[in-house]
C-alpha cells in the first residue's frame, strides 16, 4: 500500500478536468433544459388554466343564453297557445253564429212553407166549405148558397141599428161587391133594400172573387160585409195551433 504522489497529482488534475467537462456537457445543459421544460409546463398550465377559465366563462354565457332562449320559447309557446285558443274561440263563435243564422233561415223557410201550406189549406177548405154549403143548402132548402149569403147580408142590413143606417145615408153612392156574379133578381132585391134607406143612393155592383163566398157593401169609406173569410180565419188560427212543428 503506497501512494504515488505524481499519480495523486495527475488524478487531481484529471478529476478537475472531469468536473469542468461534465459541467459543460452534462449538468448545465440538462439543468437548463429541465428548467426550461419546467417553465414550459408552467406556461402550458397557466395557458390551460386561462383556457379553462375562458371555457367556464363561455359555458356560463351559453348556459345563460340557453336559459334565456328556453324562457323565450316558453313565452312564445304560451302566446301561441293563447292566440290559438282565441282563434278557436273566434271560429267557434263564427260557426255558432252561422249555425244560428242557418237555423233562423231554416225556421223562416219553415214558417214561409207553413204559411203557404196554410194558405193553400185555407183556399182548399174554403172551396170545400163553399161546395159543402152549397150542396147542403141545395138539398135542405132548395136554395143556392149565394142566395143564402145574399139573404143573410140583407137580413144583417135590415137589422142594423139606426145610427149605422144613418151613416149609410150620409153617402151619395155605394158599391156592392160580391164573390160571385149576381142574378138580376138578386140585384133588384139588394137595390130595393138599399133604396129603402135612401132612395137617392147611387148603387153599383162589382164582382171580386177574393171575397170568399161573401158579399160586401162599401159606402162613405165604410164597409159592411158577410163572407166566409172570418170563419176561415178562425179555422186557420185553430189549425196553426194544432199543426205539428208550427212556427212559434
Amino acid at each position: 500500500m503506497q501512494v504515488d504522489w505524481l499519480t495523486v497529482a495527475a488524478q487531481i488534475v484529471n478529476f478537475l478536468i472531469l468536473i469542468a467537462l461534465l459541467k459543460r456537457f452534462l449538468y448545465r445543459p440538462i439543468v437548463s433544459t429541465m428548467e426550461a421544460r419546467q417553465r414550459y409546463i408552467e406556461s402550458q398550465l397557466a395557458q390551460a388554466r386561462e383556457l379553462k377559465r375562458q371555457g367556464e366563462h363561455l359555458t356560463a354565457t351559453y348556459r345563460d343564453k340557453l336559459e334565456s332562449l328556453e324562457r323565450e320559447r316558453q313565452s312564445l309557446l304560451e302566446q301561441a297557445k293563447r292566440e290559438v285558443e282565441s282563434e278557436r274561440q273566434a271560429l267557434l263563435d263564427k260557426v255558432r253564429l252561422e249555425v244560428e243564422q242557418k237555423r233562423l233561415e231554416w225556421l223562416q223557410d219553415l214558417a214561409r212553407e207553413q204559411a203557404v201550406l196554410l194558405r193553400e189549406l185555407k183556399s182548399l177548405l174554403a172551396e170545400q166549405l163553399v161546395d159543402l154549403g152549397r150542396r147542403a143548402f141545395a138539398d135542405l132548402a132548395a136554395k143556392t148558397l149565394e142566395q143564402c149569403v145574399i139573404d143573410a147580408f140583407l137580413e144583417r142590413l135590415n137589422t142594423l141599428p139606426d145610427d149605422k143606417k144613418a151613416l149609410l145615408r150620409t153617402g151619395d153612392r155605394c158599391q156592392v161587391m160580391t164573390a160571385f156574379p149576381l142574378e138580376t133578381d138578386d140585384r133588384i132585391k139588394i137595390e130595393r133594400t138599399l133604396k129603402s134607406f135612401d132612395p137617392s143612393l147611387d148603387i153599383s155592383f162589382e164582382c171580386r172573387p177574393e171575397l170568399i163566398c161573401g158579399i160586401a157593401l162599401e159606402a162613405d169609406d165604410r164597409i159592411w160585409h158577410w163572407d166566409l173569410a172570418s170563419y176561415l180565419e178562425e179555422l186557420e188560427t185553430t189549425l196553426s195551433r194544432v199543426l205539428p212543428g208550427s212556427v212559434p
Partner: peptide, 24 residues
C-alpha cells in the same frame, strides 16, 4: 482507466445532450 472512465462520461454526456428538447 481514469481516462477511459472520463472519456465514457464526457462522450456519453455529449452524445446525449447534443439534441436536447424542451418538449414533454
Amino acid at each position: 482507466s481514469t481516462w477511459m472512465v472520463m472519456a465514457l462520461l464526457v462522450l456519453g454526456s455529449w452524445l446525449a445532450t447534443r439534441r436536447l428538447t424542451v418538449t414533454v
